[in-house]
Amino acid sequence: MKVKRDQRRWWIPAGLLAGSVLLAGCNHGSDSTPATMKRMFKVEVTNLTANQPLSPIAAVLHRSGYHAWQEGNAATVGLERLAESGDGADLLSEAQSDSAFLSKEAGSGVIPPGQSGSIQMEAAASDPRLSLVTMLVNTNDAFAGLDAVDLSSLAPGEQLTVSAIAHDAGTEPNSETAATVPGPAGGGEGFNADRSGDVDFIAVHRGVVTRDDGLANSALDQSHRFDNPVARVVITRLQ
């Protein structure tokens, strides 16, 4: 039997995650900011899905070397918890213990479909990267996010727009049952440390099947399907 560690509270302050597909939308201008001066960024995430609320963003500024996830590798427990429950606290703690860590920030709330949420972050470093993660909460273990987007060339006032795709943490079978989907479509269990029955590596998500497409016990309907990209992230350097 599974060890029930945790919560149905997928809405607790957590992280956001996204795909690693990067879409460059800025001109990298010259930047003579001293390394010791703080750089401030606004990070705005727009939910592009039809009916997949995004859990509160978990965002990390860091130097080269840190990854919140890597395709083909097993998820950390922090990422697993975020992807299964929307709780990014462990992921942020893991990041903080990484030697490349600069700063972290948690979003203040769920980002509903069609809406946006933003955070501000800062770091005193000339070579910051941004990683962030959020859960697609009407799934078993889908997340989206950014993987180490290089902000070192972003000058004050410049913006970078990046698209995020959906990943599967590989830590929970995609049964789509109400008991296992923590979002409003299911109201079921969030984090569960058991990884049996799934591949235990991170992949691009294959999408949800839903009961409207023949998966009899699915708590999801056609509205919960998604395609990539699932989120748009606009990063603005404020100073």
Partner: peptide
């Protein structure tokens, strides 16, 4: 198997 063999793009990096 609709639960196993579907995919969304991208499929490779």
């Amino acid at each position: 198997d609709s639960r196993v063999h579907r995919w969304l793009n991208p499929v490779a990096r």
